[in-house]
Computed example of a mutant assay.
Amino acid sequence: MEQWITWIALVLMAIMIFRFMPKKGVKYISTKELQPLLERGDVVFVDVRSASEYKEAHIPNFINRPVGSYLGDLPKDKPIVVICQSGVRSNKACKELVKLGYTDVTNVRRGMNGLKAA
């Protein structure tokens, strides 16, 4: 019985590690590195938090596309920067964008929480 519990624990750990590992094709930046990008006009900024989170506080350059929304209509010829509250949902959205064929995708580590801490 202990052997089964050990195997199940190992499988669950492997799944968690795989789920939160950086995705090939996704760049990661800090909130400090985000600041100069906000001045550029050739970047698409996407906030994947819920509509209510976005309404409560957001960065003006970002459009709101909650996780689960269709992202395939974003321009493929421009860099895309994705943010959420902590970086988890934006990482998921970045992985989805890469699956859809986007090649210049960046996730903001620590998300809005990182902005508050800075």
Rank of each mutant, 00 (worst) to 15 (best):
103 T>S: 14
57 A>P: 00
66 P>I: 12
103 T>V: 09
44 V>G: 06
3 Q>A: 13
67 V>W: 13
54 Y>F: 15
44 V>R: 03
75 P>D: 02
43 V>P: 03
22 P>R: 06
103 T>G: 01
81 V>S: 03
31 T>Q: 04
20 F>G: 00
5 I>K: 14
58 H>K: 13
33 E>C: 04
117 A>H: 10
108 V>L: 11
44 V>S: 12
116 K>E: 11
48 V>R: 02
54 Y>D: 01
12 L>D: 02
106 T>I: 12
60 P>R: 08
4 W>T: 08
31 T>Y: 00
60 P>F: 11
3 Q>W: 13
44 V>P: 04
84 C>A: 12
17 I>P: 05
88 V>T: 05
44 V>D: 12
58 H>R: 13
51 A>S: 13
5 I>M: 12
112 M>D: 03
48 V>T: 09
88 V>S: 12
31 T>E: 02
82 V>E: 07
33 E>T: 00
34 L>F: 09
44 V>T: 14
19 R>S: 11
25 G>V: 07
19 R>N: 13
87 G>Q: 05
27 K>H: 10
110 R>G: 00
39 E>C: 00
111 G>K: 04
26 V>R: 04
116 K>L: 04
102 Y>L: 09
33 E>F: 01
102 Y>K: 04
32 K>V: 13
42 D>C: 09
69 S>E: 09
42 D>T: 11
111 G>A: 08
16 M>V: 04
13 M>T: 15
30 S>L: 07
99 K>D: 14
15 I>E: 08
102 Y>A: 06
47 D>V: 07
23 K>G: 04
